[in-house]
Computed example of a mutant assay.
Amino acid sequence: MRTTTTTVALLAATAFLLPTSAHAASEPRLGDCAAGELCLWSKAGFKGTRHVYDLAHTDIESCTPLPPGTDAQSLANRMGRPVTTYQSAECAETGEFDTHPGAGTWMPQVPYRVKAFKVWES
C-alpha cells in the first residue's frame, strides 16, 4: 500500500513538469524574439532559420527584402510598430501582403512565403 501511495504521489508531482498539451510545447518562448525585434523563421511553427531585425538596423517605411534565396513561414512582430510582410521580394502589392500590429503579434503559419517587409512609423 505504501509503495502505491508513493508512486501516485511521484506521478502527480511530475505531471506539473510536463507541458499541458502539444500546442503549449510548440509555442515559442518569449526570449526567442525580444521586445523591439521582428523575427522571421524559415519554417512554420517558429522553426528553421531565424532572421532578426530591429529599428537600429532597419529603415522605416522602406522595403527590406530577406536575404536572397530565403523566405519566412512564421513570424513574431515585437517592434512596437506595424509591419507589413510581402510575398514579393520588392514589396509589390500585386502579390499577397498583410500588416501585423506591433503589440506582440505571433504567427506560427503565415498564408504565403514572406520575402520582404516594411516597418511603418505608426
Rank of each mutant, 00 (worst) to 15 (best):
F97S: 13
G102W: 10
V52D: 14
A12V: 01
G36W: 02
S74H: 06
A92F: 09
V119D: 07
E61Y: 01
R2F: 02
L55S: 10
T94E: 04
G95Y: 10
F16Q: 08
V52F: 13
P108L: 00
F16S: 11
W120Y: 12
K115V: 03
A12I: 01
A24I: 13
S26D: 05
C91H: 13
E96Q: 13
F117T: 04
Y86P: 12
D32Q: 15
C39G: 14
C39A: 15
R113V: 08
A44M: 10
P111D: 14
A116L: 01
A22M: 06
G45R: 04
F16T: 07
R29S: 11
A35N: 13
G80H: 09
G31P: 05
D71N: 11
L40P: 05
P28Q: 04
V114N: 09
P101A: 11
L30G: 08
P111Q: 09
Q87K: 12
V83P: 01
A103D: 12
E90N: 12
Y86F: 15
E37C: 11
K118F: 00
W120V: 04
L18D: 00
P108E: 04
S74M: 06
P111K: 11
A9R: 08
V83C: 02
L40K: 07
A116M: 02
L55H: 07
I60P: 05
Q109I: 09
W41D: 06
A76M: 05
K43T: 07
A72H: 08
H100Q: 09
V110K: 00
A34I: 03
T14D: 04
C39K: 14
Q87F: 07
L38G: 13
K47E: 03
L10Q: 11
S62G: 03
D32H: 14
K47L: 02
D59L: 15
C33G: 15
H51P: 00
L38D: 09
G31N: 15
T84I: 03
V110C: 02
R29V: 05
A92D: 13
A15I: 06
P28Y: 03
K115Y: 02
S122M: 09
T58P: 12
A12D: 01
P28V: 07
R2E: 12
S21D: 08
I60E: 07
G48P: 10
